[in-house]
């Protein structure tokens, strides 16, 4: 994946020079290790700052919502599916975009890596399969496979589903992946156990809404959590309000979530709120044979009716 950068720069410079786009959205190095940040290159000179490695987990589709200009955007498998969803939902037009596809081999989980070391991590160096972590008094090489973000480890759409340019050869898709082991475990719990499980999961939540803000699906001008007339959900730390926020947000992402992991990645306290969106993803797959963001020409299950739609729950 590291070798992509030359091609990324070459394509970006070409697009900007030919005035095919007004900016290219990609990544630049962040101020701390393992935290690349979005970079908006508006001139060929800006392109110099682009980087590509396993710390590009932010979903760049988040920056496309309601834009009017022509944009070039780097897209991993998941980003590309969110771009498709944006096109379906009229948040951006296909002909405004030059999608620069980036076949992806997974992003690394910075929280998992930090937890492995006592002291502060000063530098993280990466090659194709390994990650070397250096800090004050320690240095260790890890196998990249062992430190992937969980959503990347179970990803089955690593190649961009839609693209105009490609920065490298397509990668092999993972097959025989069990995507829903965690969801099934929770499904098997009794109602009261579920309630306790979720309350414990969400207990550390500080309602910072980073998960919502990082998510490309959450583009509502006023989110239901911010509304005060009427106030759908309380703003404090009452466990009922906290879970209401999470349950409702997950439902708003039903049939749309691509499991890109941007929400979980952004959480300052490390909550895996993806279990909620994954449950709905599993339901959509089982009930409607639907996976989000694969084809801009197919309407999603929540806005189509088919006579065969399951209705056993109606008595």
């Amino acid at each position: 994946m590291l070798s992509y950068i030359d091609k990324i720069k070459e394509i970006s410079i070409r697009l900007l020079k030919e005035c095919r786009v007004e900016m290219v959205i990609g990544f630049r190095k962040g101020t701390v290790p393992m935290m690349n940040e979005p970079h908006f290159a508006k001139s060929p000179e800006d392109v110099e700052n682009f980087v590509w490695d396993s710390n590009c987990g932010i979903n760049l589709c988040n920056y496309l919502t309601n834009r009017g200009e022509k944009i070039g955007i780097l897209a991993k498998g998941c980003d590309s599916r969110n771009i498709v969803t944006h096109i379906i939902e009229n948040k951006i037009k296909r002909d405004q975009l030059v999608i620069i596809g980036v076949p992806c081999k997974g992003m690394i989980d910075k929280r998992k890596i930090s937890a492995m070391f006592e002291g502060e991590i000063g530098e993280v160096i990466e090659n194709e399969n390994n990650i070397t972590v250096k800090g004050d008094g320690f240095e260790k090489t890890l196998n990249k496979k062992d430190v992937l973000q969980q959503n990347c480890a179970i990803c089955i759409h690593r190649n961009p589903v839609i693209h105009d340019e490609l920065v490298g050869d397509l990668v092999e898709e993972q097959i025989d992946v069990d995507r829903y082991e965690d969801v099934r475990e929770i499904e098997a719990l009794a109602p009261q156990e579920k309630a306790t499980h979720f309350e414990k999961l969400l207990e550390p939540c500080i309602r910072c809404y980073a998960c919502r803000n990082a998510c490309p699906l959450c583009y509502c001008p006023t989110c239901f959590t911010d509304e005060s007339r009427p106030q759908w959900v309380g703003k404090g730390q009452d466990p009922t309000d906290v879970s209401t926020f999470h349950f409702l947000r997950a439902y708003h992402c039903a049939g749309r979530c691509t499991d890109c992991g941007a929400c979980e990645r952004s959480c300052p306290v490390g909550i895996n709120m993806r279990v909620f969106t994954k449950k709905l993803e599993k339901d959509c797959l089982e009930l409607f044979e639907w996976e989000a963001g694969l084809d801009p020409d197919v309407r999603p299950p929540l806005d189509t009716y088919r006579p065969g739609d399951p209705d056993e729950f109606i008595k």
């Binding site: 109602p191 309630a195 979720f198 879970s243 109606i314």
Partner: peptide, 13 residues
């Protein structure tokens, strides 16, 4: 969500 399945019911009437 921790709501018993029977607590929520749907019917066509």
């Amino acid at each position: 969500m921790g709501i018993e399945p029977d607590r929520l019911q749907f019917s066509w009437v």
